[in-house]
Write a protein that binds this DNA or RNA. Structure first.
Length: 656
RNA sequence: GCGCCCGUAGCUCAGCUGGAUAGAGCAACGGAUUUCUAAUCCGUCGGUCGGAGGUUCGAAUCCUCCCGGGCGUACCA
């Protein structure tokens, strides 16, 4: 049941005789922006008045006269310039609320035409530990899977892991040259990660040594250019002066940028050279990046030794990822990484060339799109395939083998252009999959700069989760007397509260916006946080515990008729209304695959409950019918919050 | 140079396809607990919606220009 959809269809019927295409006007029926305007508002009388050349309030009156809605709402009111305000009849709301009792789906009908969705998310590079940058894709992707499934679609979650790239060459090189066998035997994942970091660091140092003179040369070049531009600006006047000043300013910015790069390179070099042993290690392994690339190339070419190492390392790395996903409550139906598509890549390129879609340019095989300067590069001049090739093979596989209707790519915004080219190329190629890039903003540091793996400032995902759980545990301990909850119960609560805080903090942002990472904001447990909803559920739990009844018993006593639900205080009605908005919110989420409206609804629902909680006693309410009604509202609130949180991948406990 | 995105309260952000006095949370300040968990509730303070034009009965929202910031821009994925 969805009141908004119902009211809109009634408006469609009322508007049909008045205008050729009522759809845009029908879309102007919304939930009321303020409770004092009622439950729903229609803003369509004003534009219609213009088309009909009549006063808007008269048009509003005419719409109302044609509107068949008396069974659902109180008589509509015209307000201001011609807003039509609607308020649901209390009897209707009470009856519909009573009907929700015990309904697992909270009145949400499954979609009429289910589709098969592939949701492609998380996609970490194997052999590299996950960090906060992986959080958004993982959490948003998981939530979208849950929501799509709940509304009745068929969903395959797919982790397109990076298991075939340069980082594996680094690990192989490290394994051959720097292995600590004892450490590897005890903790292979940690040792492989150490080897990766070590090779990466040596490569970074060597790169910096090579780059530094070039950077210094560029600096003096830019400085000279900036100086002469400033001087030229001094000489000039009028609009020319302004323009030259702007250019000089840009050049000064570039100078500052190069200075930063130099500082970064010097830092890398200083770190190594202050440690003679490490310096010797670097010198003993010259051009390590090239040598790691050679290992990668050998792996791709089918070298048996490297292939054997890859097969040895893969399950180890996968197990580490699995543990992280298990802890986060995230499950994949498929984990088809880059290596899975490797055997198909040559065929992809051949096919595109044969059809004349791909052409050679500067030795590389490219697909060019009209209006786009950048090519889609499917084979490099050295013969190696790129992730573009892999992504094309993936689409083919998803269409032909998985029989998917649609694919959601939950990947950061910087890759927007890649996906535009990918989807356009796939279309030319003849694979019609409804592909959508579910883009999200970058994780920024406190200076609003992008987190960069090389700048070293990243926060590991595991330490983030641990910190959240530790903070949650402190709050649990502070809120309970000794003996009130045992240690294991406290730890379970800390885990779900900590993880819930992190997931909620991420999901409540509009996914398109960038994300300023802050430990305190990410781990906050007061205000608009996951904890707030979990706490509301725990308070419901407390009501039933202290009331010495159970949710099941209360449901059993319900008759399902309007008489079950009584509105004796505004907070009761507001709470019931809020629960009924669930369907509207899910529809809104799925328009653009944005989970944030769902977090907003959860907060509003928990907030409505908190208000109810302070004003309406349940256990001690003397009137039997009212008390029963309140118990039912509590049960429904908990069901609504639990379901909404579940769709975000957040758990609850009856006590916390 | 070209392309894409962003600029809303001290901070972090909502604001749906143009609608009523621009909303939350945090922070600050003031209240609320003999009664179901105060991880709460109620209130106060706080905004030239980056700037200027334009379209409109009506603009944070749409268009143009400007300022400021970010990202991408052929052999990394």
């Amino acid at each position: 049941m969805n009141y908004l959809a119902d009211i809109r269809s009634r408006f469609a019927r009322a508007l049909a005789p008045l205008i050729d295409d009522p759809a845009p006007l029908v879309a102007m029926v919304h939930p009321a922006q303020d409770a004092k305007f009622g439950d729903y508002q229609a803003n369509c009388a004003m534009p219609l008045a213009k088309a009909l050349k009549k006063p808007p309030r008269d048009v509003a009156a005419e719409i109302i006269s044609r509107l068949d809605i008396a069974d659902l709402c109180d008589p509509p009111e015209i307000a201001g310039p011609g807003f039509i305000n609607l308020r649901l009849k209390d009897s209707v709301l009470a009856a519909d609320t009573a009907r929700l009792v015990g309904d697992e789906r909270l009145g949400i009908e499954p979609v009429a035409a289910p589709k098969k969705y592939i949701v492609d998310f998380s996609a970490p590079n194997i052999a590299k530990p996950m960090h906060v940058g992986h959080l958004r894709s993982t959490v948003i992707g998981d939530s979208l899977c849950r929501i799509l499934r709940f509304v009745g679609h068929e969903v395959l979650s797919d982790n397109h892991i990076g298991d075939w790239g340069t980082q594996f060459g680094m690990v192989i090189y490290g394994y051959r040259n720097f292995l600590d066998q004892e450490n590897f035997d005890q903790n292979p994942v940690e040792e492989l990660a150490r080897l990766y970091r070590l090779v990466h660091q040596i490569a970074g140092y060597q790169g910096a040594v090579v780059e530094l003179p070039q950077l210094r040369a560029r600096l003096s070049e830019k400085e000279t250019a900036a100086k002469s531009m400033s001087e030229a600006a001094e000489q000039a006047s009028g609009p020319e002066k302004k323009d030259l000043n702007r250019k000089a300013g840009k050049l000064r910015d570039e100078v500052a940028g190069v200075r930063e790069e130099i500082a970064g390179a010097e830092d890398k070099i200083a770190k190594v050279e202050s440690n003679p042993a490490f310096k010797a290690l670097c010198d003993a392994h010259p051009r390590i990046a090239d040598r790691a690339r050679e290992e990668t190339a050998k792996l791709h070419a089918g070298d048996e030794a490297n292939r054997a190492l890859w097969e040895q390392f893969m399950p180890i790395c996968q197990a580490a990822l699995d543990e992280m996903y298990r802890r986060m409550g995230i499950a994949f139906d498929l984990t088809l990484g880059e290596s899975f598509y490797n055997p198909m890549l040559a065929g992809v390129v051949d096919d595109l060339v044969r059809r004349g879609i791909a052409v050679e340019s500067d030795g590389a095989m490219c697909v060019f799109q009209e209006g786009k300067k950048a090519p889609f590069l499917i084979r490099k001049s050295d013969g190696a395939f790129t992730y573009a090739t892999t992504d094309l093979a993936t689409i083919k596989y998803r269409v032909e083998t998985l029989k998917a209707d649609a694919a959601l790519y939950v990947v950061g915004a910087p890759q927007a252009e890649h996906f535009e080219l990918l989807f356009a190329t796939a279309k030319k190629w003849g694979y019609h999959l409804d592909c959508r890039h579910i883009s999200f903003g970058s994780v920024l540091d406190e200076n609003r700069q992008m987190f960069r793996t090389r700048s070293g400032g990243t926060v590991g995902l595991e330490s983030l989760l641990d910190e959240a759980v530790t903070r949650a545990r402190q709050i649990v301990d502070a809120n309970h007397e000794e003996g009130e909850l045992d240690d294991s119960a406290r730890q379970v609560i800390a885990e779900i509260v900590g993880l819930g805080a992190i997931k909620y903090a991420d999901l409540k942002h509009n996914r398109e916006s960038d994300y300023v990472f802050s430990w305190d904001k990410m781990l906050a447990m007061t205000g608009d946080t996951g904890t707030y909803m979990q706490y509301a559920c725990a308070r419901v739990g407390g009501i039933f515990r202290k009331g010495e009844t159970t949710r099941a018993a209360v449901r059993k006593s319900a008759t399902g008729s309007a008489d079950d639900i009584r509105f004796t205080h505004p907070a009761e009605r507001a709470l019931a209304m809020q629960i009924h908005r669930f369907g509207e919110v899910l529809a809104e989420v799925l328009v653009d695959f944005r989970p944030s409206p769902l977090t907003a609804w959860l907060y509003e629902t928990a907030n409505a409950f908190s208000t109810f909680y302070t004003h309406c006693k349940v256990k001690d309410e003397p009137d039997d019918a009212v008390r029963k009604s309140r118990y039912l509202l509590c049960d429904l609130t908990a069901s609504a919050l639990e379901k909404g949180l579940e769709l975000l991948g957040i758990q609850v406990r009856e006590q916390m």
